[in-house]
Design a protein around this nucleic acid. Sequence first.
DNA 1: GCCAACGTTGGC
DNA 2: GCCAACGTTGGC
Length: 140
Amino acid sequence: MNHWLVKSEPDAYSWNKFVQEGKAVWDGVRNYQARNNLMAMKTGDQVLFYHSVIGKEVVGVAKVCREAYPDPTAGANSGTAPTPWVVVELEPLMPLPRPVTLAQLKAEPLLANLALLRQSRLSVMPIRPDEFECILALGC
DNA sequence: GCCAACGTTGGC
DNA sequence: GCCAACGTTGGC
């Protein structure tokens, strides 16, 4: 199983709304690196849910319930593009009893290479198993 | 193909 | 509100 982290501004789409709805179509990703990560996700993979800008903390764990398919919100350019934009579907797995803040992540030596810290603008990124376990431990 | 201008993201 | 990082666009 692989592990990932996705970002969302809670103003736009919060963990609470995600839980209320029970499922999310992760659409609107318009960055190639993030798109490649979406395409590598497999059903059952676990995904950390991070609140950017407001909160700046990992608030819960989701899992992939449907693998990548074309993004219905992408324009009608699908014919020419080599690979169109894609979405995955996620569902909530569990909230973190103690959300893990960005400051905590930065303070943890084991997380020094975390993609979130090294590429602050990437919105969908892989997380190593040991990093995933570390963040989970901080949050429980 | 280079690079300046510009827009967006996200931390502070 | 500001600014750094960085992706995209468009002129040349």
